[in-house]
Design a binder for these strands. Sequence first.
DNA 1: ATCATAGGATTAAACGTTTAACTAAGTGAT
DNA 2: ATCACTTAGTTAAACGTTTAATCCTATGAT
Lengths: 331, 331
Amino acid sequence: MTTLRDVARRAGVSIATVSYVLNGTRPVSPEVEARVWEAVAALQYRPNRVARGLRRKRTHVLGLIVPDSANPFFAEIARGLEDLSFAHDYSLILCNSDGDPAKEQRYLGVLIEQQVDGIALVSAGAAPAHLAILQQRGIPFVVVDREISGLAADCVLADNFQGGYLATWHLLERGHRRIACITGPPDLTSSADRVRGYRHAMAEAGIELLEEWVYRGDFRAESGYHAARFFLQLPPSIRPTAIFACNDLMAIGAMRAIGEVGLSIPHDISLVGFDDIILAAYVIPPLTTVAQPTYEMGRMAGELLLSRIQDRTRPPARHLLPVRLIVRRST
Amino acid sequence: MTTLRDVARRAGVSIATVSYVLNGTRPVSPEVEARVWEAVAALQYRPNRVARGLRRKRTHVLGLIVPDSANPFFAEIARGLEDLSFAHDYSLILCNSDGDPAKEQRYLGVLIEQQVDGIALVSAGAAPAHLAILQQRGIPFVVVDREISGLAADCVLADNFQGGYLATWHLLERGHRRIACITGPPDLTSSADRVRGYRHAMAEAGIELLEEWVYRGDFRAESGYHAARFFLQLPPSIRPTAIFACNDLMAIGAMRAIGEVGLSIPHDISLVGFDDIILAAYVIPPLTTVAQPTYEMGRMAGELLLSRIQDRTRPPARHLLPVRLIVRRST
DNA sequence: ATCATAGGATTAAACGTTTAACTAAGTGAT
DNA sequence: ATCACTTAGTTAAACGTTTAATCCTATGAT
C-alpha cells in the first residue's frame, strides 16, 4: 500500500506538506504542489480513510437499520439514502434487524463501534429503551417511517393520517357508506395513523362507525384474506360495500377472498390499498391505492442526518411527506 | 468517548493488559481480568473499530456494488450477503452503480480507501478494465451474476444456460416447435447464457432455428412488448407458438401485446419467463418461469469472499447455482 | 544594519488500538 | 545458591492521517 510517506519521499517534501496539498488546507508553492501531484499520480496514492477517520474523529460513514432490506418498501428507502450519501461522499452500512429489537440493538452496537457519523433507523420495536444509548453517546440519528413514542428525535414520516383520510374520502365520494378497514399492527404508528385517518373521514361524513368494520390485520396477505371473509359473512344490513386495507398486500389478500365468493371488484365491492407496490398496478383489476414517497423518505432521512451532524443543537425536526392517492380500477 | 486508556486507569492496569483481556490474546490473572471486566462494564466501554482496523490492517467491512439495490433481484442478493456478513461479524457497505462503469469505478475507489476487506460486485460493464485495480492491489473480490470475460476471479452465477435449456425444453415437451426467444443485452453473460441454453435445446430437438425467432430485448417490459408484436406479425407458417423471454419483465410486456391482439395465453401462445419476480405469480395468467436462487447467490458470494480473505492463494472458484423451473398457467 | 512579518516548509504530537519486546517475580531442578 | 523457565504484567512502537507549533528564509520597512 502506498502511503503519505511514500508520496512525500518521492516528491521530496514532508508528509505534512503532502497532506496540505491533498486537502488544500494550507497554501503551498506551485512547484511543490506540482511535484506532489506528480507523485500521487505516479504512485497511485489513495488516502486511507480509516486512518483519516481515526484522526479526524469523523468517518464519513452512515448506518441504516431496516427490518428487511429485501422488502421493496425498505429497499427504496435504502436506495434514497444511499444516493444522498454518495452525493455527499458518505458511505452507507446496511443492517437488517428482521424486526427483532435484540438484533437491532446488536447492530446499534456495531455501528457505534464502527464510529459511524450518523444512523438512520426504521425501528423494530415501539419501545425506545435501547435507543437511549444513541442519545447518551450523542450520536446523530433519525428515525424513519415509524415514530418512537416519547423520543425527541429527528424523524421523517409519510403522512399516513392523510393517506387513510384520502383513501376513505375517495370511497365516500363514490357513494359508499359502509366502509370497512383492515388495519396493520396497532403498535406501528404508521399503521395506527392510517386507521385514524379512516376514522376521521368517517366521522366527518357523519357516519357512525361499527366496530365490526375494523379488522385487525398484520400487514400480510393472509390477514387481508381473513379480514375480507369476515366482512363478507356479516349480515347484509351492515355488510361493507367498500374496504380500505392499510397496505396493498392485505388488499390483494382481500381480493382473493372476494373473488372466491364470486363477487366482483369494483362492481360489488370497492377496494383501496396502501403503499403502491409494483404489484398493485398489475393485479386484476388494478388496485386503487395510496402511494408513499419512499425514495424521497430515504433522501430526506439523509438530509436530516447530515444537517444534524453539522449542528447537534438544532431542535429535533419532524418531516411529514405528502402521500398521494392513485385511482385505478378497484373503486 | 471511553477508550482503553480509561478502562486501564480504572482497573489499575496498563492498556496492553486490557487489550489482552478483551481479545483473550494472552492469559491474564483472574483478579486482574475481573477488575478489567468490571471497568469495561462500568464505563460502558466499546472498542473503536476504526483504530483497530488501522492497527490490524483488517477492517471487518465488506463492500457490495450492484447496479440498483432497489431492484428486487439485487436487493435479494444484498440481503443474502448481508446476512452472511452479520453472522461473521462483518459490516457491509452498500453501493449503487446504476449500471454506469464510471460510477462503479468511483465506488471501487471509495471502497479501497475505506480499506474494506473484500468486495462483491455485480459489474456494470463487460469490460474488466477498471477492475484491474482490484487485482493490482490484491483486494479480495468476487463477481456475482455476471461473469467478466478474461478475468480470473471468484464468481458465483446462476446456471443461466441450464435455465434457458429447461425453459425451452419445457415448451418442446408441450409440443411446440416454433419457439421464439426474447433476449437480454447480449454483453451480459447471464443473458447470453440463457439464449445459449435455448439454442442448445432447439438444436437437440432437431429444430432448425429461424433468426426471426430471436429478438434482441433489453430486459425491460417495453422491449418484450415490441418483441411480441414483431413475432405476431410474422407469416403464419413461421409464426411462433411459444415464446421464451429472458426475464419476467419482458415476458409481462409480451403478455400485454398478446392480449392486445386478442390472443389468449396459453391457448394460442405459450410463454415462459425468467427470474420469478413476485409479479410473476400474480399476473394473469400466472407466469411459468425460471427461478434463480438470488438470496443464496448473495450468501455464496459472502462465503467465497471470506474464504478468499483467509487464503489469497487459493485458485479462483466458479460457483454455478442451480435454477429451477416453476410451472404455472402460461404454458 | 536591524527588525518585524509573512510565506512556505517541517516537526512532532495526537487519534485508539495491537503486539513485539522487555521486565520482574516466582518456581523448580541441579 | 544458581540457573533456566514460566507467568503475568508493562513499555513503547507501530498503523496512516491531521494539524498545532515551530522553524527558516526572504522581504521590506525603518
